[in-house]
Amino acid sequence: MTQYLILIYADEAAWAGATPDENAQLLKEHVEFGQRYESVIRGGNALQSAATATSIRPGPAGGSAVTDGPFAETKEALGGYYLIEAADLDEAVAVAKQVPTRFGGVEVRPVWDMS
Protein backbone atom coordinates (compact mmCIF):
# COMPACT_ATOMS: atom_id res chain seq x y z
CA MET A 1 0.00 0.00 0.00
CA THR A 2 1.09 3.51 -0.73
CA GLN A 3 0.06 6.73 0.92
CA TYR A 4 -1.24 9.55 -1.26
CA LEU A 5 -1.80 13.14 -0.25
CA ILE A 6 -4.94 14.66 -1.72
CA LEU A 7 -4.41 18.43 -1.83
CA ILE A 8 -7.58 20.47 -2.04
CA TYR A 9 -7.28 23.70 -4.02
CA ALA A 10 -10.03 26.31 -4.04
CA ASP A 11 -10.69 29.80 -5.31
CA GLU A 12 -10.72 31.68 -2.01
CA ALA A 13 -12.51 34.70 -3.48
CA ALA A 14 -15.42 32.51 -4.60
CA TRP A 15 -15.40 30.68 -1.31
CA ALA A 16 -15.54 33.94 0.65
CA GLY A 17 -18.78 34.74 -1.17
CA ALA A 18 -20.46 31.48 -0.14
CA THR A 19 -23.59 31.67 1.99
CA PRO A 20 -23.69 30.11 5.47
CA ASP A 21 -25.97 27.42 4.01
CA GLU A 22 -23.46 26.59 1.32
CA ASN A 23 -20.69 26.37 3.90
CA ALA A 24 -22.78 24.11 6.11
CA GLN A 25 -23.53 21.90 3.12
CA LEU A 26 -19.83 21.61 2.22
CA LEU A 27 -18.95 20.73 5.80
CA LYS A 28 -21.66 18.08 5.81
CA GLU A 29 -20.26 16.61 2.60
CA HIS A 30 -16.78 16.40 4.13
CA VAL A 31 -18.16 14.64 7.19
CA GLU A 32 -19.93 12.15 4.94
CA PHE A 33 -16.78 11.66 2.84
CA GLY A 34 -14.80 11.06 6.04
CA GLN A 35 -17.25 8.42 7.23
CA ARG A 36 -17.43 6.69 3.85
CA TYR A 37 -13.66 6.44 3.43
CA GLU A 38 -12.77 6.07 7.11
CA SER A 39 -10.89 2.83 6.38
CA VAL A 40 -8.41 4.46 3.98
CA ILE A 41 -8.10 7.99 5.43
CA ARG A 42 -4.95 8.40 7.50
CA GLY A 43 -5.31 12.11 8.20
CA GLY A 44 -6.66 15.37 6.93
CA ASN A 45 -7.29 18.98 7.83
CA ALA A 46 -8.75 22.20 6.54
CA LEU A 47 -6.37 25.17 6.42
CA GLN A 48 -6.94 28.81 7.23
CA SER A 49 -6.92 31.08 4.19
CA ALA A 50 -3.76 31.83 2.20
CA ALA A 51 -3.84 35.33 3.67
CA THR A 52 -2.70 33.78 6.96
CA ALA A 53 0.31 32.09 5.35
CA THR A 54 3.95 32.89 6.00
CA SER A 55 6.68 31.83 3.57
CA ILE A 56 10.31 31.31 4.39
CA ARG A 57 13.12 31.14 1.85
CA PRO A 58 16.90 31.31 2.14
CA GLY A 59 17.84 34.96 2.69
CA PRO A 60 20.05 36.88 0.25
CA ALA A 61 22.82 37.27 2.85
CA GLY A 62 22.44 33.88 4.53
CA GLY A 63 19.79 33.22 7.15
CA SER A 64 16.13 33.25 6.26
CA ALA A 65 13.88 35.66 4.44
CA VAL A 66 10.43 35.56 5.98
CA THR A 67 7.61 36.95 3.88
CA ASP A 68 3.88 37.38 4.27
CA GLY A 69 1.69 35.20 2.02
CA PRO A 70 1.69 31.77 0.39
CA PHE A 71 4.77 30.30 -1.36
CA ALA A 72 3.21 30.77 -4.78
CA GLU A 73 0.46 33.26 -5.50
CA THR A 74 -2.23 31.41 -7.44
CA LYS A 75 -5.93 31.93 -8.04
CA GLU A 76 -6.65 28.59 -6.42
CA ALA A 77 -4.96 28.23 -3.06
CA LEU A 78 -4.26 25.13 -1.00
CA GLY A 79 -7.17 24.94 1.41
CA GLY A 80 -6.91 21.51 2.96
CA TYR A 81 -5.77 17.95 2.49
CA TYR A 82 -6.49 14.30 3.11
CA LEU A 83 -3.83 11.65 3.59
CA ILE A 84 -5.09 8.31 2.28
CA GLU A 85 -3.76 4.83 1.71
CA ALA A 86 -4.35 3.05 -1.62
CA ALA A 87 -2.98 0.09 -3.56
CA ASP A 88 -2.30 2.10 -6.68
CA LEU A 89 -3.03 5.36 -8.48
CA ASP A 90 -6.33 4.07 -9.87
CA GLU A 91 -7.61 3.47 -6.34
CA ALA A 92 -6.28 6.81 -5.10
CA VAL A 93 -7.90 8.70 -7.99
CA ALA A 94 -11.19 6.91 -7.35
CA VAL A 95 -11.17 8.19 -3.74
CA ALA A 96 -9.97 11.67 -4.74
CA LYS A 97 -12.85 12.02 -7.20
CA GLN A 98 -15.22 11.76 -4.24
CA VAL A 99 -13.63 14.56 -2.21
CA PRO A 100 -16.22 17.35 -1.96
CA THR A 101 -15.02 20.36 -3.94
CA ARG A 102 -17.06 23.46 -4.52
CA PHE A 103 -14.66 26.18 -5.63
CA GLY A 104 -11.78 24.26 -7.17
CA GLY A 105 -10.38 20.75 -7.41
CA VAL A 106 -7.85 18.36 -5.96
CA GLU A 107 -4.33 17.18 -6.73
CA VAL A 108 -3.14 13.66 -5.88
CA ARG A 109 0.50 13.10 -4.97
CA PRO A 110 2.13 9.84 -3.93
CA VAL A 111 4.00 10.08 -0.65
CA TRP A 112 7.65 9.06 -0.96
CA ASP A 113 8.09 5.75 0.78
CA MET A 114 11.33 6.07 2.76
CA SER A 115 11.28 2.59 4.22
Binding site: T2, A87, D88, L89, D90, A92, V108, R109, P110, W112
Partner: peptide, 10 residues
Protein backbone atom coordinates in the same frame (compact mmCIF):
# COMPACT_ATOMS: atom_id res chain seq x y z
CA UNK B 1 6.56 3.79 -11.02
CA UNK B 2 6.43 6.43 -8.27
CA UNK B 3 2.72 7.23 -8.42
CA UNK B 4 2.01 3.52 -8.93
CA UNK B 5 0.11 3.46 -12.19
CA UNK B 6 -0.83 -0.21 -12.24
CA UNK B 7 0.45 -2.68 -14.83
CA UNK B 8 -2.86 -4.41 -15.43
CA UNK B 9 -5.99 -4.66 -17.48
CA UNK B 10 -8.69 -2.46 -15.91
Amino acid sequence: AAARIPYRVP
